[in-house]
Amino acid sequence: MERAMGLPISHLLLVTGLVLVLIGMWGVLVHRNILRIIIGFSLFGTGTHIVLVATGYVTGGTAPIIDRALPVGEAGARAVDPVPSALVVTAIVIGFSVTAIMLSYAIRLYEARKTLSIDAFTESKW
């Protein structure tokens, strides 16, 4: 349960998250289509969330919810760190907000130039 393909589960999550961050970064830097850049930012954010959750994992831990499977007395010994989970809930909502704002700007930019290519917007370029 705690190991997958010979790696501890938190390592696997950490690597997945970091790779997603790199893919998102590549997408933001290379693509010229504004929608693809936004997708890159979303991947970047998702990767960061996975990394945060991975750092909260405690060996052999389960979800920090007290029920029959996790009595109150064992919570300290067998639960994962609840703080990163709580922070990621916040981060997901903020990530959604940022994506919504980026998409509405994309719509306005498309209306201005009738294209989604970032190359059409040269006013702020030096």
Partner: peptide
């Protein structure tokens, strides 16, 4: 990723919350 080692116990803050 290479230098990260999995935690074996929750932090003090997490223990308090739990």
């Amino acid at each position: 990723a290479v230098g990260y080692s999995e935690r074996t116990a929750p932090s003090e803050l997490a223990m308090r919350y739990l």
